[in-house]
Computed example of a mutant assay.
Amino acid sequence: MDEGRSTKKLVIRLLLMVVVMFAFGFALVPLYDVMCKALGINGKTGGKYEGSQVVDLDRQIRVQFLSSNNSDMVWDFYPKGEHLDVHPGAVNEMLFVARNPTDHVMKAQAIPSISPGDVAVYFHKTECFCFTQQVLQPGERIEMPVRFIVDRAVPKDVKQLTLGYTLFDITARSPPVAHIASN
């Protein structure tokens, strides 16, 4: 009888643990937002950009592009240009280059950052290589576009912003990628 009681307690504790873990998973998104705001980190932009805008030809904003590799990443990674001078409301594009110099397949993920952080809500990425993981074969080189719009509602005193990416090696975090030979 005592063994049945301890089994019931164990099951209840395990179910409670599952509920707590599930709740914690939902709490991660708001916790991430709070931590980013408190620490001044900004990996988020203004979200999905809906609709089109009229281009403000009377204003120009310089968008500077930066790239860096996490300490474990060995890829060559850089933007094709240092900056673009853009008009608010216009669709713009910059290409980033990545090359896998190793002799094995690697997988990477780029994490964006906008500076100054309070301007990030006016920066809308419509296409970005950071939305997906990148898999490169040994020696493979790719050009990856980021398409964006700086919102017309950006404050008038904003003359420059910086879009930076940090590239992380996530090869070990996922199953090996099979190499498909081409004929």
Results as ranks from 00 to 15, higher is better:
153 A>W: 03
108 A>M: 12
106 M>I: 03
106 M>V: 10
120 A>Y: 13
6 S>N: 14
137 Q>T: 07
28 L>C: 06
51 G>P: 01
168 F>Y: 13
32 Y>R: 09
76 D>H: 04
154 V>P: 08
53 Q>G: 06
93 E>A: 11
106 M>Y: 01
70 N>K: 05
51 G>F: 00
137 Q>A: 14
168 F>M: 04
182 S>H: 09
81 G>W: 00
66 L>E: 06
179 H>K: 03
181 A>T: 09
11 V>M: 12
132 T>M: 11
16 L>V: 14
9 K>N: 08
6 S>I: 14
64 Q>V: 15
78 Y>Q: 08
178 A>M: 04
156 K>D: 15
76 D>Q: 07
85 D>I: 02
128 C>V: 00
62 R>K: 02
114 I>G: 03
117 G>V: 02
126 T>K: 13
24 F>Y: 14
182 S>R: 09
32 Y>T: 14
115 S>H: 10
30 P>Y: 09
118 D>I: 01
155 P>W: 10
125 K>G: 06
140 E>S: 03
156 K>Q: 12
144 M>Y: 01
183 N>P: 02
94 M>V: 15
162 T>G: 07
56 D>G: 02
26 F>P: 00
20 V>F: 15
101 P>H: 04
139 G>P: 00
144 M>L: 14
28 L>E: 09
134 Q>L: 13
167 L>I: 15
114 I>D: 08
2 D>R: 11
7 T>N: 01
93 E>K: 12
25 G>Q: 09
124 H>C: 04
28 L>M: 02
2 D>F: 08
174 S>R: 08
67 S>Q: 11
172 A>I: 00
169 D>T: 09
43 G>V: 01
88 P>H: 15
10 L>M: 04
58 D>M: 10
132 T>L: 06
126 T>G: 03
43 G>S: 04
90 A>S: 14
124 H>G: 03
107 K>I: 00
21 M>L: 14
135 V>R: 10
28 L>S: 15
143 E>N: 12
35 M>E: 04
117 G>F: 12
28 L>F: 08
69 N>F: 06
111 I>P: 09
128 C>I: 08
126 T>C: 01
70 N>C: 01
20 V>P: 03
85 D>R: 03
139 G>N: 14
179 H>Q: 08
107 K>V: 14
158 V>A: 14
41 I>P: 11
163 L>P: 07
57 L>A: 15
42 N>R: 15
181 A>L: 01
108 A>S: 09
143 E>D: 12
39 L>V: 05
97 V>T: 04
149 I>D: 12
76 D>A: 05
127 E>G: 12
149 I>R: 14
88 P>R: 12
67 S>I: 00
